[in-house]
Structures are given as C-alpha cells and as structure tokens.
Nucleic acid binder design. Structure first.
Length: 628
RNA sequence: GCGCCUGUAGCUCAGUUGGAUAGAGUGCUGCCCUCCGAAGGCAGAAGUCACAGGUUCGAAUCCUGUCAGGCGCGCCA
C-alpha cells in the first residue's frame, strides 16, 4: 500500500470491505470490493457493484445485500472519530485539518450519503468538506497528491531508436513520443527508469554508407564533415540502389561491414565522422521536440559489437544452435513460417555477419546482467511482435531472461493519411507527395507555420521571439497529444487541421484552458503563495465548483493502474475532461468580481486546475504556454 | 495457409478485469460577448456497438463461428 496518500477510491473500498466483513463474515478475506466513479453524476460520486458479486454466494438478492452493507456503513458513519464527523457541516470548506490524509478520515467525515439504487447499486456521495480538505492538502504539492510507488523497480525503457542512415521520420516519431511519455510517467511514479536509445548505427546499412563515402569522398573526409545532413541520406539511397545493381559494390559494402566489425582504422574513421554528424542532428531534434533523451541514453547497436560473438558462442555451447545453409539458427517450439515449417531465430548470417536478433539478445543480457533491470519495455512498431516473441523465448531458454524480469514489447500501429481519389477517399500510409517518408523536422516546420498563422489571427500583437516560442510549443502539443490520446495499438490518421483545432480533444484546447488561468492570475494580482497557505474557507456556492472539485481530487487515481497498462491516453482523457469542466465553470462562475470568500475558493480551484494541467502535460512531454 | 491486431454516430475516436438510459469531439441546425481571453459555452438531430449463436439476474465487454480490414511469417532493422 502506498503510505501517506490514499485515494478516495481506496478509502471507500476500505470502508465497504469492513462493512462486507461485518455483514457477511463468511464471504472470506479474499473478497475485494470494486469501487468506480459514478458514470452518471446524478447517482453520486462513487459506486460499487459488490452486491451483484456477492449475491450468488450469499443466496439472496443483490438488493438485500446492498441494503445490509449500506446500513453497516451508516453505522460506521455515526461513530465519532478524530475527524469530528459530527461537526463536518455540509458546504464548509476548511473543516478538516489540512495535514490529515483521506485514509485517516472516518466514514462519517468522508461520506455524505450512501444509497442503494436500482437492482442493488451502492452509490456514495462524498462530503464537500472531505473533498475540499483533499484539495487544500494538494494545492502546494508539486505532485498534486500522487504518491510514489511502494515497490519501485528499475525499468529499462527502450524507445525512439532511429536508423541513423536516415533522418528521423514519422515512424520513429511514434516510438519517440509514446516511449518518452512512458519513461516520464514511470519516473514520476518513483521508478528507477533507465532510458535506452537503441539506434541503428551498425550492420549492413553502414557498410553501404562507408563504401559510398570512400568511393565518393576518397581522402576528403573533411568535405563530408561540412556537407549538409541530407548528403548522408542521399548517399545511402544511392548506395542501396547501387548495391542491387552492382555485384562489385555489394561486395564492397559487405567488406566494409567486416572492416567495421574487425576495427579497421580507416573504415572506423569514416564511420566516426558519419556518426558525429548524424548523432548531433538527432540530439538536436530531441531538444527541439522536447524529448527527454540525450547522449547519456545512447546505447546503439554498435555498443554491443564485442558481445555479439559471445552471444553466438554461448548459444552454441548450450547446444541451441544448428547450421542451416551456413547460417546459425536457433529453433524454438511453436514458431512456423509461411509453409508451416519451423521458423528459426538467425543469430549469425551465412556471410558470418550478425543481425538484429543477435543485437537484441546482447541487449537483454546487458540490461538484465549489468543494468539489473527488473522490467524491460521496448517500444517499436507492431510489425516486430513476432520477432520479440521469439527473442523473448530464446533469451528465456538461454537463461538470460529470468522469470522475475518482465520483457514487454509495446507495439504501435502505422500512421495513415486520407487521400481523395476520384471523388472517393481512402487511407494510405502517411508519406510525402512523391511517396517518400515524412521527416519529423519537416513536420515541425509545417506545424510552426500553421501555429504561427493561427496565433496571429487570434492575437496580432504577439510577435518576435514570443511568437516563435508559442508556435513551437503549440506544434509540439498538437503532434504529441494527437499521438498519445488514443491507444497505441491502433493505426491513426494524420490530420493537421484536426490536431491543431482549438475545439475538441486536442492539445491546443488544453493549452488554451491553461492560458486562461494564467491570464487570470496575471490580472488578479493575487499572491499565489498566500492562496496556497490559506485557500479560504468559503461555502461551495455552485454545482460546477463541486464538479470541478471531484475531478481535481481524483487526479491520483489516474495513475493507479499505469504500470500495468502504460496508458498515457488515460492522462489525455483526464486532462480533457478537466478542461471541459473548467470551461463551463469559467463561463458560469465569475471569479474576480465575486465576493471575497467565493473569489478565494474559485481562485484556489483555478490554481489547482492549472497545476494538474501543467503536471499532466509535462508527463506527456508537452510544455505549457502563458499566452497564445 | 497460419499468427497477432482491429471493426462502436457521416467522419475521428473513448468505453472492453460483465453492471444503471452506449459516451466525447468533429461535421450539420440554431443560440450566447455591458461580465476574468469567444482558440470559449449552450441546445438539437444523428447508433441493429460488423454479423449469428452461446454463457447469466445482466453482454459493446466473456466464449464459439462467420464476414471485412490492417500487419507479420528465413538471413533488413
């Protein structure tokens, strides 16, 4: 259990569990009540369906069970407790001492009403004072009430992992954005996160590149150093074609792979120039895109070069390998190819070179052995699922991946675009007009053009560096939010107008909500610190204040299942809900012109909203703006 | 052929450890600035939850089958 902070869900669960144990002593200690927020707020704040689950075992109607449990809870509520349940007047904000956690509250202090409805639903409405007290406790808390995990793990998160022979494109963007959010949240929850950028800088692609560079630049490596970045990609594209057309060049490229692997100084020198150039570009892009990866997280394929022969040798010693057309293969149960024949993991190719399976196995050994990972999360496209299933099975068989270490492959779908063709629209893979891959750099530039235009339309007096900064942040918010708001598993359709729309479930809408609060505090001249120290003790005077309060204090519950689900889209959903409630509140509840006590309450609510928006967005890798 | 994933409003998607009348946004039709930012808010119309069976007090959710789509299945990563 997490100590210090207990969410309302957990507190209610405890109360209901006690009541069930009281009414039905035979139900057994294994019974755990389920508590969820009411889907319809008219029923209350939280509901439980425990009566339905118990009905069969107790051989009575759900309604009877619910009524018995509710009665028992009501008896708990009547008990006097340290929270002074009898004094907790409805509607008063500061009745509970701010230091007291939800877990320490008595049933009477926490619950306003408990009712049975329908066939046996138990609906609970919380006391305003309990909600308000929880808000006060978290107003000064940079974590907004979210506890750290009681069981922190060392978790390796492997993401982004671009192929350095090409500039970063939208395919790697998904891994980068999704993985970055996962790393940020797990770290926030107190885990020891080890980010690993397993980028492609070794193997066949680089044989081609080194061969091309030697051929075209000869001794003039300096000119390559100064050449624009596109040169590399262009060289690679031509080299790949040449490899198909010319046996001589293909042999050269293969030879260069061997040269690199054996540490030939001349080839390695070329490779280093290449790496320096492309890596600088890559890290530069991470900074621009607000991705929390830097050089300290680099753990590329080449990192494992000395391990590769050992991986093969050890597998061979364990008698797990067979020779097949000169390739060294491991066969595992349950994997078949298109003809139904056994499908191998190839760890050494017929030309004696190593491939990505070898590197991934070396990666697992390194992460489990040296990095002491308790969990490994790899974020790549869904197409690699079979590959990772086989790698996992082989690593387990070899004893490199103990049962205590979980290896998870998080696969995501492809990015599509809608195109019109003869009056009908269809979806194809997202690409440039000539069918090439879309580069992240170009995407950012296009987003900034659009964001700048939209900003100027609304706010013509913004200009210069401020405009640049706003356009950059809006672009990042739009792109990342669009990426994260839906489940990674599904394909998604790229659409600038949709992601930059200020209406609807977009990053821009949420930023706008934040901007309104920022503007409010700019105008009011309110001392935020004073507000945090003494948030006021006014009555709740409007139903929207309460609705906002309920949403605000449920923030920690968002993270209850995160480690299991890695569901950043739930965070998006929460932020969007919070923003819509605040927008309604904003419309109906004047703040600055209200009487002082009402005003202070509304300011405190506003501050709490801004804090959660800022924190939640930061966990998605999105920065807020103060003006837009 | 086999495996994995997906199918919910015209469109984009939530909801899937079984729970109350299936939710948002967009688009459409209207409405709301004397008031803290209208990049906002409100109201209305729009659904055989792909289809067919099954399991039970109860199914978008679980099981079986069918259909449709995406991806993967031996030396690229």
């Amino acid at each position: 259990m997490r100590s210090g902070h207990v969410s309302f869900t957990e507190a209610i669960k405890n109360i209901l569990n006690n009541a069930v144990a009281d009414c039905f002593p035979d139900s057994g200690p294994a019974f755990e009540c389920q508590v969820t927020p009411c889907q319809d707020k008219k029923f209350g704040d939280y509901q439980s369906n425990l009566a339905f689950l118990l009905a069969k075992r107790e051989r009575t109607s759900p309604r009877n069970i619910a009524e018995a449990v509710a009665e028992s809870v009501q008896a708990q509520m009547a008990l006097p407790g340290p929270a002074g349940s009898g004094q907790a007047r409805r509607g008063r904000i500061s009745n509970l001492s701010p230091g007291e956690s939800v877990g320490a509250m008595t049933a009477g202090a926490l619950i306003e009403t408990i009712e049975v409805a329908g066939a046996g639903f138990i609906n609970i409405r919380l006391r305003d004072a309990a909600l308000a007290a929880q808000l006060e406790r978290t107003l000064a808390d940079p974590r907004c009430g979210v506890a750290r995990s009681a069981h922190p793990q060392r978790i390796v998160v492997d993401y982004s992992s671009p192929n350095l022979a090409k500039d970063l494109h939208v395919g790697t963007m998904r891994s980068t954005v999704i993985g970055d959010s996962i790393a940020r949240v797990l770290e926030f929850l107190g885990h020891d996160v080890v980010r690993q950028n397993h980028f492609g800088d070794w193997g066949a692609n680089f044989g081609v590149l080194v061969a091309m560079i030697k051929r075209e630049y000869g001794a003039g490596l300096d000119t390559l150093q100064d050449a624009p970045l596109e040169t590399v990609e262009e060289l690679y594209a031509r080299g790949s074609r040449l490899k198909k057309d010319s046996e001589e060049f293909a042999a050269n490229a293969a030879a260069e792979v061997n040269n690199l692997q054996s540490g030939d100084p001349e080839s390695v020198a070329v490779w280093e120039v290449l790496m320096d150039k492309t890596l600088r570009n890559c890290h530069d892009l991470y900074r621009t895109f607000n991705v929390s990866l830097d050089a300290s997280h680099d753990c590329p394929e080449s990192f494992y070069r000395d391990d590769l022969p050992r991986v093969v040798a050890e597998l061979s010693d364990m008698n797990l390998l067979v020779d097949d057309d000169n390739a060294k293969c491991a066969y595992l149960d349950g994997f078949h190819n298109i003809d139904g024949d056994p499908l191998p993991v190839i760890v050494q190719k017929s030309d004696a070179g190593y491939n990505y399976s070898t590197t991934d196995l070396a990666g697992i050994r390194h992460r489990v052995g040296r990095l002491q990972a308790q969990q490994i999360i790899i974020v790549t496209d869904r197409g690699q699922e079979l590959h990772f299933r086989m790698i996992r099975a082989l690593a387990q068989k070899a004893g490199w991946l103990p049962d205590s270490v979980q290896l998870r492959h998080l696969g995501y779908g492809v990015i599509l675009q809608e195109i019109k063709e003869g009056g009908r629209s269809k979806k194809v893979r997202f690409s440039t007009r000539d069918g090439g891959t879309v580069k992240i750099r170009e995407l950012l530039a296009e987003g900034r053009r659009r964001s700048e235009k939209l900003t100027l339309e609304r706010n013509p007096d913004i200009g210069g560096d401020e405009l640049d900064g706003i356009a950059a942040k809006l672009t990042i918010a739009a792109l990342k939010y669009a990426e994260l708001k839906q489940r990674p598993v599904s394909d998604y359709t790229f659409n600038w107008d949709q992601m930059l729309a200020s209406q609807g479930n977009t990053g821009v809408y949420i930023l706008y909500c934040y901007v309104r609060v920022a503007s409010l505090f700019g105008k009011s001249g309110v001392d935020k610190d004073a507000l945090v120290r003494s948030p006021g003790s006014s009555t709740l005077s409007h139903e929207l204040e309460r609705e906002l309060l309920v949403q605000l204090v449920s923030f920690p519950e968002l993270f209850a299942g995160y480690e299991e689900e890695l569901s950043s889209h739930d965070i998006c959903h929460y932020l969007y809900e919070l923003s819509t409630i605040y927008s309604r509140f904003w419309k109906d509840c004047p703040i600055l012109t209200a009487a002082e006590d009402v005003r202070n309450t509304r300011l405190a609510l506003s501050l709490a909203v801004a804090n959660r928006l800022k924190l939640g967005l930061s966990l998605l890798g999105i920065e807020v703006v103060e003006r837009m």
